Computed example of a mutant assay.
Amino acid sequence: MKSRLDALFGSETFASLYPDTQRPKVYLGFPTNEPPFYVAIDEVIDTAASSGAASMGHARIDFSVRVWCFARHAKQETASDTLLAYTDAVFKAVLADQRLNGAVDNSFPEIETAGTAADSSKRYTAAASIAVACHVYSQCPAELMEVVNESNQ
């Protein structure tokens, strides 16, 4: 996900789609010294579950990857508009290849929470948490299934 967002935010396409929008720096995890404009990809998957079979004997694994977008500016409108551009770009980056380069069977982004607030430096921070819900089918390797099946006999 990081390489995808690095490529997107560093491209001329981003500049043409979102003119006059400050490009964010993309981090894996949160930076120690927060810059005013950044996107952080949470490297820890915090929700995961298995669900009904996608095919006979193969459960589906569902998990979420969090992407956090931040924009800080003296003007609330600038912070908000920048955040909207970042979230829109993240959505489009996921939806352009929902298989995430073959890492999952499909994925769908959704904004979990977002908002703006003034801080003590009289700057506005706009932030959004985007959950990229990922689904992987037929997760269990055939070799493992064979071992389990043999032990059941």
Rank of each mutant, 00 (worst) to 15 (best):
residue 23 R to E: 06
residue 116 T to Q: 14
residue 33 N to G: 05
residue 107 S to T: 09
residue 119 D to H: 09
residue 71 A to N: 00
residue 46 D to G: 01
residue 51 S to P: 04
residue 141 P to I: 04
residue 63 F to W: 09
residue 145 M to Y: 00
residue 96 A to F: 07
residue 112 E to I: 10
residue 5 L to E: 11
residue 58 H to W: 03
residue 65 V to P: 03
residue 32 T to E: 13
residue 78 T to H: 00
residue 148 V to Y: 11
residue 62 D to Q: 13
residue 140 C to Y: 05
residue 114 A to E: 13
residue 5 L to C: 12
residue 118 A to S: 09
residue 53 A to P: 04
residue 41 I to C: 01
residue 6 D to L: 11
residue 102 G to A: 11
residue 14 F to N: 05
residue 114 A to L: 08
residue 62 D to M: 14
residue 41 I to R: 03
residue 3 S to P: 06
residue 135 H to E: 04
residue 89 A to I: 07
residue 14 F to E: 03
residue 100 L to I: 14
residue 127 A to T: 08
residue 110 E to M: 15
residue 32 T to F: 05
residue 46 D to C: 02
residue 75 K to N: 04
residue 23 R to N: 08
residue 87 T to S: 07
residue 150 E to W: 08
residue 15 A to P: 05
residue 83 L to G: 01
residue 24 P to W: 02
residue 122 K to V: 07
residue 64 S to D: 11
residue 84 L to V: 08
residue 74 A to W: 04
residue 119 D to F: 02
residue 134 C to L: 01
residue 125 T to H: 00
residue 91 F to E: 14
residue 108 F to L: 15
residue 127 A to Y: 01
residue 125 T to Q: 03
residue 91 F to I: 03
residue 105 D to N: 14
residue 84 L to M: 11
residue 129 S to N: 09
residue 112 E to H: 07
residue 72 R to V: 13
residue 8 L to R: 15
residue 77 E to L: 06
residue 22 Q to W: 02
residue 140 C to N: 08
residue 145 M to R: 12
residue 98 Q to T: 09
residue 142 A to S: 12
residue 122 K to M: 08
residue 21 T to R: 02
residue 100 L to Q: 10
residue 58 H to I: 00
residue 104 V to T: 13
residue 55 S to Y: 13
residue 63 F to V: 03
residue 135 H to R: 12
residue 31 P to G: 07
residue 81 D to M: 02
residue 88 D to P: 06
residue 32 T to V: 11
residue 120 S to T: 15
residue 105 D to W: 05
residue 151 S to A: 11
residue 37 F to S: 00
residue 73 H to Q: 02
residue 131 A to S: 11
residue 90 V to G: 03
residue 143 E to H: 07
residue 34 E to G: 09
residue 102 G to N: 07
residue 33 N to K: 14
residue 33 N to L: 14
residue 134 C to A: 04
residue 59 A to P: 04
residue 141 P to S: 11
residue 60 R to S: 07
residue 49 A to W: 12
residue 103 A to R: 13
residue 71 A to P: 04
residue 92 K to E: 14
residue 52 G to H: 06
residue 120 S to D: 14
residue 16 S to W: 10
residue 19 P to D: 13
residue 153 Q to E: 12
residue 93 A to W: 05
residue 23 R to H: 01
residue 2 K to P: 01
residue 80 S to Q: 12
residue 55 S to H: 12
residue 34 E to I: 07
residue 116 T to F: 02
residue 45 I to T: 04
residue 121 S to V: 05
residue 109 P to S: 10
residue 61 I to N: 06
residue 13 T to I: 07
residue 4 R to F: 05
residue 142 A to Y: 04
residue 135 H to Q: 11
residue 91 F to N: 10
residue 23 R to W: 00
residue 10 G to F: 04
residue 12 E to G: 15
residue 99 R to E: 09
residue 110 E to Q: 15
residue 67 V to H: 02
residue 14 F to T: 05
residue 139 Q to T: 06
residue 1 M to A: 13
residue 38 Y to S: 01
residue 40 A to L: 06
residue 152 N to I: 14
residue 2 K to F: 07
residue 142 A to F: 04
residue 84 L to Y: 05
residue 91 F to S: 08
residue 80 S to N: 14
